[in-house]
Design a binder for these strands. Structure first.
Lengths: 129, 129, 129, 129
DNA sequence: GTGGTCTAGACCACC
DNA sequence: GTGGTCTAGACCACG
């Protein structure tokens, strides 16, 4: 587990941990059923307090991405991949803001769409896992 | 100016105001040179503190989206649309996270791309403005 | 806000706080839109750390019972009262265990049902609020 | 003995085992005098540690539901069914919380009472055993 | 050794 | 003033 963290970012550390893990799960770097490092070991690994890691794990559990198994610690959940109207709305709102910013930053539509497709393709590998 | 604000969101109010304004500029609902409501009137309008609106306006000024004019107040700037490597990297990182989340939420690639294109097309109208 | 807490209970404090608040909401002692004490003041009030109260508030927020409003602090949410299959299943499982225990403790069916009805009636008052 | 266990539940395994056994006793699936599987075989069966099963058996013994017999192992006790004020208070407190949650989850009184009666009826069969 | 809970004390962003 | 985040250190229940 290599995580990319930016301690000087305005984004909180536990959210960065979540983002890293979500990307890893989506890309298949973390497979369903795979165990994550214990909160303590990951905390030591990345040099933060264990509560910070714990918060990230627990939020991911609440979102259905992890199970906290009493015997094996945190493991990647069998993903529901079921659509959720509310979640979908939130994501689309985010996308709208992201695109508005991209557009105003001079990023062309084609460039954006091509990149989005590329990222999505990297995800799709996981489904066959 | 109709703003969508969610006071129980974890996103801060001033950032929500910025998001709203950026979307409006990108979509052309706010045209270049157009004046925004005064800080005071907008604050009253949406029921928030003066400082909150002020902070949003100032951040948008710093990002080059608004000019603060002594007489006309805040007006939409002549947008540079010039590419910024750092900004671009940030946006792409955000996109990666957004897509990972979308993928894990069961949103299909085609659906995502189609929506992204639709949103982008709504933006492109402005360029001819 | 008077809370009944048992510090020697095996049930964790933050869960006891949640239970107290849920009962208060269900009974209408806390009305929709009503503000709760700040985490700090409640923590001081009941003599626990603010993080303990914070955890309770946040869990109730996640469960949809509270909104954390940036301006007003924690307020009782407009309750959805919408049925949730999963939640319902959990509650019924709990009921099954509770009744099994009651039965084996010699509590008669009629006694149990009468009490349940009485408790439920106290809740129903809220709906007309 | 088929047990329903959820290893990613926040409820500890030994308590889940107890719950399962109590339900089985209350429903008459386990009859008075009947032997339970040995600690070892049950542990193997459900894939948990010996100590875990042992703890559940011992707690049930302490609560008067099981007798630990040197030769026959754990057998279902001749149930006292005598009322215990303290226990009764605890159960009623639990019921109050359960009903508050049910009510706020949109479960109607009649639905709840009907289900409670149904569960209780399934228990009453045992009394004639 | 694992996560869960609680305390104490600190700083920060926001309103 | 509010909640949000992070640290540090402690104890406990569980498996």
């Amino acid at each position: 587990m290599k995580l990319e963290l930016d301690f000087s970012s305005s984004k909180s550390i536990y959210l960065q941990i979540e983002d890293n893990l979500i990307k890893a799960i989506a890309k298949g770097d973390l497979k369903i059923g795979e165990s994550l490092p214990s909160v303590r070991s990951m905390a030591e690994d990345i040099g933060v307090n264990l509560h910070t890691v714990n918060k990230a794990y627990n939020e991911l559990k609440d979102r259905g991405y992890l199970n906290i198994d009493r015997r094996k610690g945190a493991v990647v959940a069998d993903l529901p991949m079921k659509k959720n109207e509310i979640k979908e709305k939130e994501l689309f709102d985010e996308l709208e803001i992201l695109i508005s910013n991209s557009f105003l930053s001079g990023i062309q539509k084609d460039e954006f769409l091509k990149l989005a497709e590329k990222i999505y393709n990297e995800c799709e590998v996981v489904k066959n896992d």
